[in-house]
Each structure stands twice: as structure tokens, then as C-alpha cells.
Amino acid sequence: MPLNFLLENVALKGTVTQSSTYLNTWVAQRAIDGVRHKDTYCSITLSEMNSWWRLDLLSEYEIGTVIITNRDNGWAEQTSGAEIRIGNSMENNGNNNPICVVIPNLQAGTSIIFSFNGTVGRYVNVVMPTVQHLSLCEVEVYGTGNKTVK
């Protein structure tokens, strides 16, 4: 088992927000509730250009792994193609932080693991760079450091 899986999911301690909320019920917090693969536990934005979801880890971490889980009732395009951005800047709601990876075509109901080496940041943003809903059923972030952000 990779070392990152021995670390705590620091996303559960963070706070989240998103660019908009679909039907006022698919709130950002549903993506860090610890529940995978249940469609009623997903966050979904409106269909808009550059829809985004942001996790504030409340302090800086060296992030080793991010796991994204897609909804299991279809609409895989609402996650596929989204950019994961990690950094310390709140410029443009954190969406100007460096792109670390683009989520490939992700099948419904599946999770994908991204490993990073030395990526440091307080904010983890997921940005859909097209006109589209952004749907996230779970976002897990494993890291170390918990350095105080100045």
C-alpha cells in the first residue's frame, strides 16, 4: 500500500465552496462528506463557463495524493476534463493556481488516484474549463505538513 494511504484525508477538515449550486441542494460540502458512490451525496454546479469547486485546507500541506470519485448514475462528462489546481493563491477564487492534472475520461461510479511529488498548497480547486456542470461525488486529499500559512 502506498505511504499516502497511511496519511489522513485532510479534505475532511477543510472548508469548501463552489461557483454555483445546482437546484440549491447539490452543495459543495457533499464532495467532502466521506461518502463515495451515492449520487445524492455529490456536489454539482450550474452549467456555466469555468465552473469551479474549491477546498480550503486551512493551512498549507504537501499534497501526495488526490482521489476524485465520479457520480455513478451517468453524466461522466461533468467530471471528465476538469483541471485540478493546487496552490496558495486566492486570486480568481484560487483558479489561477497551477494546473497539476486534468481529469481524463472518467467512467460513471469510478474513482481515480492522482499522485503528486512535492506539490504544496492550501487550496485545491477543481475547474471545468468549458460550459458544463461540474459534478464531484468525493474529493479526498492526502498530505503532510500542516504548516501555518502566513
Rank of each mutant, 00 (worst) to 15 (best):
V16L: 10
T17R: 15
T17E: 11
Q18E: 04
S19C: 08
S20G: 05
T21D: 00
T21Q: 07
Y22T: 04
L23P: 06
T25R: 15
W26G: 01
V27A: 12
A28G: 06
A28S: 10
Q29A: 15
Q29V: 10
R30C: 00
I32A: 03
I32E: 00
I32T: 08
I32C: 04
D33L: 09
D33N: 15
D33K: 13
G34T: 08
V35T: 14
V35H: 11
R36V: 12
R36T: 11
R36W: 05
K38G: 01
D39P: 10
T40D: 14
Y41E: 12
Y41T: 10
C42I: 05
C42P: 05
C42G: 00
T45C: 07
L46K: 14
S47L: 03
E48M: 09
E48L: 11
E48T: 11
M49C: 06
M49Y: 12
M49L: 14
S51H: 03
S51E: 03
S51W: 08
W52V: 00
L55A: 00
L55S: 02
L57S: 02
S59D: 13
E60H: 07
E62S: 14
I63S: 03
I63W: 03
I63T: 00
I67Y: 02
I68C: 07
N70D: 10
R71E: 01
R71N: 01
R71S: 02
D72V: 14
G74Q: 09
W75H: 13
E77K: 15
Q78T: 12
T79R: 11
S80P: 05
G81A: 04
G81V: 05
A82Y: 06
I84Q: 04
R85M: 02
R85S: 00
I86W: 08
G87N: 09
N88S: 07
N88F: 05
M90A: 13
E91F: 12
N93S: 14
G94Q: 08
N95F: 03
N96C: 14
N96M: 15
N97F: 09
N97D: 03
P98F: 06
P98T: 01
P98M: 10
V102R: 13
V102C: 03
I103E: 03
I103W: 10
P104T: 09
P104G: 07
N105W: 06
Q107V: 08
Q107I: 07
A108P: 08
G109Y: 05
G109R: 12
T110S: 13
S111G: 06
S111E: 07
S111D: 04
I113R: 15
I113M: 14
I113G: 06
S115T: 15
F116P: 03
F116Y: 08
N117V: 14
G118I: 02
T119R: 12
V120S: 11
V120R: 15
Y123A: 01
N125A: 04
V126N: 02
V127G: 10
V127S: 09
V127A: 08
V127W: 11
M128S: 10
M128R: 12
P129F: 07
T130D: 00
V131L: 11
V131Q: 10
Q132V: 00
H133T: 02
H133N: 13
H133E: 06
L136A: 03
C137Q: 04
E138L: 07
V139N: 01
V139Q: 01
E140Q: 12
V141T: 01
G143S: 05
T144Q: 12
K147E: 04
T148E: 12
T148H: 13
V149R: 14
